[in-house]
Nucleic acid binder design. Structure first.
Lengths: 242, 242
DNA sequence: CTCTATAATCTGTTCAGACAACTAGTTTAA
DNA sequence: TTAAACTAGTTGTCTGAACAGATTATAGAG
């Protein structure tokens, strides 16, 4: 039974939201199950119906619940929720698939932005940017080849050591607030050098993923281009409102 | 200037939402612009602040706006909104890219579901399903090869003619409410027959997209597998909360 | 026993107001 | 001059209430 702490700095709706999400993740609430009505929740937790509503609506948007006017609130099928709440960090994703992630830094330098990179990052030509090439491995098997570009002025003190770990974590520790990203996927054939690094034969199919990462204030943080081995990586995405 | 119709069957928040979306799409509100505060809107439209909030929050979730506590509400960069509101129909997407979509029905039959298809559709083995193969063209150039499976009991009266047009539209006209879909993408090499139909050389890279479409009640509507030409198709997706 | 009207229950929408937390600019004190 | 305190403005959270619209169960009429 959930105890709500109205004194907590965490909002009440957030506490209820986390509680329900836990119940679903733990399997105590199964897909198709009917949830108590808003009024019942409201009395049970001694909070306003609008507060309950906010918790429920967030879970509906995240794909955990579904509701129908006049009928009630139901637990949604699980797969959608998994893919809708976008976990993006390479390390997290590999761990989630039950493998051990590893990165090898192939190169690290500061270069003036070329036309294409400047355009992708929405910055003037020749602006200094970090260029970092990394080989991504899962259980010691090469999985992807990534080239990332970040404007130097956003992270002026970044060192080669920092680049070995998670850049996202480093950025957030230095006051940058990342908000969202867009990815563009395409099928390509691997070139000779790429094939060698990924230990596949030349012209084998690879998934080319261009990623643009945005900051809270709307500015761009990073542009990266990755090549994933076609035989060992697939990408899943959920879409609403067809 | 927007006139709100409080007698309209359309909710007030929805009218405000549509009005703001229009302003953004028309370029009257540009990325980075600051919106009036909630209180100002509230007085301007003579509605409660909570109603304004609901309109704004929906647009924030759709990627059109962003907000910061203590600062205000701002128009977000456009690309994200475009990809976040998931337009999925092949025809719509091709039109959106300024091309002319066309479908050629290659085969249409009712078969008992094989293991793989039954599993993908969450139905018992051997259940009758429609199998429809279509070649998708954009401006008369072959773009994709699609094989779709739909349980017969969901659309018992489907004819070959119906299958030539939009199945989604047909399903909705017959009382089925589609809710969402998941897509899994992978890079592959084209086989000999596939290559011939797509007019590419054998072993050329193709994008394999598996799609599962769900109904409002949580049941599955369709499983389809498409092969897109790697040289002429890319797929974009937006992700929140990194 | 069947069909229809009614009632109860549910989510959806809207309101007016209150206080908290954060931001940015201004004023005051050292 | 500089730093701290204050203030006005903004979004975030929460309350309690009311009515609308959809769905389901129930009671009553035929």
């Amino acid at each position: 039974m959930l105890e709500i702490d109205k004194q907590s700095p965490l909002p009440i709706y957030y506490q209820i939201e986390a509680y329900l999400k836990q119940q679903i993740d733990d399997g105590l609430l199964k897909p198709g199950d009917t949830l108590p009505s808003e009024r019942e929740f409201s009395e049970q937790f001694h909070v306003s119906r609008m507060t309950i509503r906010q918790a429920i609506m967030n879970l509906v948007n995240a794909g955990y619940l579904s509701r129908q006017k006049g009928r009630g609130t139901f637990v949604a099928s699980q797969k959608i929720a998994m893919t809708l709440s976008g976990l993006t960090s390479f390390s997290e994703e590999i761990k989630h698939r039950g493998m051990r992630p590893l990165s090898r830094l192939l190169s690290y330098e500061v270069i003036p932005a070329t036309d294409r990179i400047a355009q992708q990052l929405s910055i003037p030509n020749q602006t200094p940017v970090y260029e970092m090439k990394r080989l991504r491995l899962a259980d010691d098997h090469p999985l992807a080849l990534e080239t990332a570009y970040i404007p130097v002025h956003l992270l002026p003190d970044l060192t080669q050591d920092d680049a070995t770990g998670s850049i996202y974590a480093y950025a957030e520790q230095h006051g940058l607030r990342l908000k969202n990203a867009t990815q563009t996927l395409e099928a390509r054939s691997a070139g000779p050098e790429e094939a060698k690094l990924l230990t596949i034969s030349p012209n084998a199919p690879v998934l080319l993923i261009d990623q643009r990462t945005y900051l809270e204030d709307g500015g761009m943080f990073e542009y990266s281009r990755s090549l994933f081995r076609g035989d060992s990586y697939s990408f899943t995405v959920a879409m609403d409102r067809i």
